[in-house]
């Protein structure tokens, strides 16, 4: 036994990341390390740039024409904006759950099976069935949909759709999962299931979660980053952030004194 086991390796790093929408700068010089051991929460007032920054981490912002990213973002030390980077592959490795649920207009089954299929993760129908069931189980949706897997994903309720998207994200067994307010449309039980899932996935995947719910951030994360007006004001251990933040702006925000 060596003490090496406690060494934390960074799964993703960002250095001096700026993001612009046209002329308007939305993110200003953000440098952060994301590791496998800890769940990282992004908190901050609406419009501060959490989603924008999260999207840079798997190049989802490529789909927004006016959006420009500078600085460096790496996955396992590799620059994800390098020309050699395969974006489809990148998004399989860095999965994302969006703020608004966005199921494909396909069956519940196909919503989950789509990723494993195109990435060749299942050797046959049986294995695909197993992946679909397991993913739905983990997202806390299986019991509700197991008898209607052929119905359209868009026919589900908002909260069910969100869990479907979470199931879809974990079905491809990503290395990093970015979740943008995954529980904002969920009831407390479904929320608890997602939080349980996050606990379960911790250590296997690097996880980043954006949440407006302070208690949720405190419950599920070990590291918290506070964003304000496009900058990362404070980044530290969650327990410290919520009991003794170092920055006044953080304190004002988490104690409800903001604005």
């Amino acid at each position: 036994m060596t003490t090496e086991t406690t060494t934390i390796t960074n799964k993703m790093t960002t250095r001096n990341v700026d993001v612009f929408y046209g002329e308007k700068q939305a993110i200003n010089g953000v440098s952060i390390d994301i590791d496998m051991e800890n769940v990282t929460a992004f908190i901050g007032p609406s419009g501060c740039g959490k989603s924008t920054f999260l999207r840079t981490m798997n190049r989802m912002n490529d789909t927004i024409p006016s959006c420009r990213v500078t600085g460096e973002i790496t996955l396992d030390g590799e620059d994800i904006y390098a020309p050699s980077m395969d974006v489809v592959q990148l998004r399989a490795r860095v999965g994302m759950v969006f703020q608004k649920p966005n199921p494909f207009p396909k069956s519940i089954y196909d919503n989950i099976a789509y990723g494993p299929r195109i990435h060749g993760l299942a050797s046959g129908k049986e294995e695909l069935d197993r992946i679909v069931e397991k993913s739905l189980q983990r997202a806390g949706l299986w019991a509700e949909v197991k008898d209607r897997l052929n119905e359209s994903g868009t026919a589900l309720s908002g909260g069910q759709q969100q869990r479907l998207c979470i199931a879809r994200a974990i079905a491809v067994d990503p290395e990093v999962i970015l979740m943008d307010e995954p529980c904002s449309a969920l009831d407390p039980i479904a929320t608890a299931k997602i939080e349980e899932l996050i606990h379960e996935l911790r250590g296997k995947y690097a996880i980043v979660i954006v949440t407006h719910n302070m208690q949720q951030a405190a419950r599920v994360s070990q590291r918290t980053a506070f964003f304000h007006l496009g900058t990362m004001v404070e980044y530290g251990d969650t327990s410290e952030m919520f009991t003794n933040p170092q920055e006044e702006r953080t304190r004002d925000y988490i104690t409800g004194r903001y604005g």
Partner: peptide, 9 residues
């Protein structure tokens, strides 16, 4: 109120 930081303390 689920207080935080100095409020919690």
């Amino acid at each position: 109120r689920a207080p935080m930081a100095d409020d919690l303390r």
